[in-house]
């Protein structure tokens, strides 16, 4: 498989804090890569750079081998890169379809559409197709999602990113606040997304979860990639060792 999105030697300071010290990272099409590391290792910072929220001081970001500049989250979305944020970034008072299409509403055809009128029927239909595809089951398409369970909200946030991602989806701790059943459901959604040929990047602290869903694991420590594992070959001890620095730098980039 070819490398889809790649970061090379990204550097970023926040005042005196050296958050990224030449961090590198890559994800292929149709694979789940888990990005792990201790708190402060730079995982979230790296994802913010790859999703266009922040820009590096030096280093390169490549998409399909071509260097690109991600000046804003909108730039990243235009390139087919979507993000599921830890705090979900959903509108709790809106219904599932409205959330799925937020910022990308379908307008009616003709004059009414030019006046800004929305085609709620079409959006709801397409949303239903999307939710079915990812196995997200909702009793009602018309309740505000604030009244749904945490797992359902999470699934909707994931579905929204996936629906619009043509290349890469970043997921920051997508299962952190979930119960066992809901967690399984979200992980299931992640696998389905991968099977559609999209690269999925998963940030997680949960090692068993990482090993069960990821194809590959990249480990960050102190703002730099320190190890890479094939999930099938790795153990939890390997991962923890690499994270804490107890193990020597494995296949460091």
């Amino acid at each position: 498989m070819s490398v889809l999105l790649e970061a090379r030697e990204l550097v970023k300071h926040y005042g005196a804090v050296h958050a990224l010290r030449g961090a590198s990272f890559s994800v292929d099409a149709g694979e789940v890569v888990a990005l792990i590391g201790d708190n402060g290792a730079g995982k979230s910072t790296l994802v913010r750079h790859l999703s266009g929220v922040e820009q590096p001081e030096s280093g390169q970001i490549l998409l399909n081998g071509e260097p690109i500049t991600l000046g804003s989250p909108t730039d990243a979305r235009v390139q087919g890169i979507e993000t599921v944020y830890q705090d979900l970034a959903i509108a709790p008072e809106l219904d599932p379809a409205a959330n799925l299409f937020l910022g990308r509403e379908i307008r009616r055809k003709g004059l009414l559409g030019a006046l800004g009128m929305l085609d709620n029927g079409a959006m709801r239909e397409k949303a239903k197709v999307e939710f079915d595809r990812l196995g997200v089951s909702l009793q009602s398409m018309s309740t505000p999602i604030g009244s749904l369970s945490g797992g359902q909200r999470q699934s909707i946030a994931v579905a929204r990113a996936v629906a619009w991602a043509s290349k890469v989806v970043f997921m920051d701790e997508p299962t952190a606040a979930l119960g066992v059943v809901q967690r399984e459901r979200v992980l299931d959604v992640i696998k389905r997304v991968r099977d559609t040929g999209i690269g999925v990047v998963l940030i997680s602290h949960n090692m068993p979860e990482v090993l069960s869903v990821a194809d590959r694991v990249e480990v960050l420590r102190l703002g730099r990639r320190v190890a890479e594992f094939r999930a099938a070959d790795a153990t939890i001890e390997d991962l923890v060792g690499a994270m804490t620095g107890a193990l020597g730098d494995g296949e460091a980039a």
């Binding site: 909108t74 970034a89 959903i90 910022g103």
Partner: peptide, 8 residues
């Protein structure tokens, strides 16, 4: 924040 992140 959600609105901002989806590009509104």
């Amino acid at each position: 924040e959600a609105a901002r992140r989806v590009g509104i």
